[in-house]
């Protein structure tokens, strides 16, 4: 058991100081701005909860909220099982697994704003490797909402699958082989091995994957904006795109209120997650 010693706080001080300046201070500022109408830094008026009620009552907010939720749900239900499947596939490859992991990690080092460009280049009808084929089957991401969604999901999966694979592989490869051998002797099915041996051992790694992927997909901006800018129609107007428009339109008070709301939404999900993880830890 680790000893109890409050002097350990001294070791946390540098981290706390740094996070206070770049995290807590801006966060308090943005919450404060949300209650004001801001024309210039000097011309600021208190408006109370006006921005918040205005945003929460607008149909557009609810629509984008629904779209972002749907997008996150799709992203998680595609990437997490696929990532675990790839990690399990790599586990059977012995020494070759390292090469598989390096391959999967490649998209993680591409600058974020270039990822949509790589894919738009790939599916370009004239010069892309896949372009002519896709054009022949009638794929049109500019005007067909379903195809736009497919493309954004594809791009996001391409970019982030590596993170899921690496973290899932880390959890799976840490399981002592004696566990699997014992299960094999008992004649356990592959599903039973996964459900009762592997899943509990990788839940910590999966929890962080879920959270990171949820937040990043819920607030997707760079990729989605470069591909469709919210279109066709409003089909891909996600939450962050509305926020981006307000910041670009210099409507700082409203943007701050919206940012605060988004932060609260994210906070709720994180809190639910942490409670679930702690309960599981107590039971284990």
């Amino acid at each position: 058991m680790r000893p109890y010693d409050n002097r350990a706080w001294w070791l946390l001080l540098p981290a706390l100081g740094l996070l206070g300046v770049v995290g807590a201070l801006p966060l308090l500022t943005v919450i404060n701005y949300g209650f004001h109408d801001i024309f210039t830094v000097r011309d600021v008026h208190w408006v109370g909860l006006d921005w918040f009620t205005m945003i929460l009552q607008s149909d557009r907010f609810l629509a984008s909220f629904g779209r972002s939720l749907l997008f996150s749900a799709l992203v998680l239900s595609i990437q997490v099982p696929l990532g675990i499947a790839v990690a399990k596939l790599l586990l059977t490859c012995g020494r070759g697994a390292i090469w598989g992991l390096m391959l999967c990690a490649l998209p993680l080092v591409v600058p974020l704003n270039m990822i949509p460009m790589l894919w738009l280049g790939l599916i370009d009808a004239d010069t892309g490797l896949l372009g002519p084929g896709l054009a022949a089957v009638g794929f049109d991401y500019k005007f067909t909402a379903l195809h736009t969604w497919l493309l954004i999901l594809m791009v996001d999966t391409w970019h982030w699958l590596g993170l899921v694979v690496v973290l899932a592989y880390a959890g799976l490869s840490a399981i002592p082989s004696a566990y699997r051998q014992a299960a094999a002797i008992d004649g356990a099915s592959r599903w039973a091995v996964f459900r009762y041996i592997e899943l509990p051992r990788i839940s910590g790694a999966l929890a962080i994957v879920f959270l990171l992927r949820f937040v990043d997909s819920f607030m997707i901006y760079t990729e989605a904006f470069a591909i469709s800018a919210g279109g066709p129609g409003d089909a891909t107007r996600f939450l962050s795109i509305e926020l981006g428009e307000e910041i670009k339109g210099f409507s700082y008070g409203q943007a701050a209120a919206r940012a605060t709301l988004y932060f609260l939404l994210v906070l709720c999900v994180v809190w639910a997650f942490v409670v679930a993880v702690r309960r599981q830890e107590r039971e284990a």
């Binding site: 680790r2 000893p3 109890y4 010693d5 409050n6 002097r7 350990a8 706080w9 946390l12 981290a15 706390l16 996070l19 995290g23 201070l25 801006p26 966060l27 500022t29 943005v30 701005y33 959270l211 990171l212 937040v215 819920f218 607030m219 901006y221 962050s240 926020l243 981006g244 910041i247 700082y252 943007a255 701050a256 940012a259 605060t260 988004y262 932060f263 994210v266 906070l267 994180v270 942490v274």
Partner: peptide
């Protein structure tokens, strides 16, 4: 290595900062 008052709160705090979307904080 140690347990201390608020160690779990600290872990929660850094988790919250990790998942705060950058767009939220960009302006301030």
């Amino acid at each position: 290595r140690y347990r201390f008052v608020g160690d779990r709160h600290f872990l929660l705090l850094i988790l919250v900062f990790r998942v705060t979307p950058p767009v939220v904080l960009s302006l301030p």
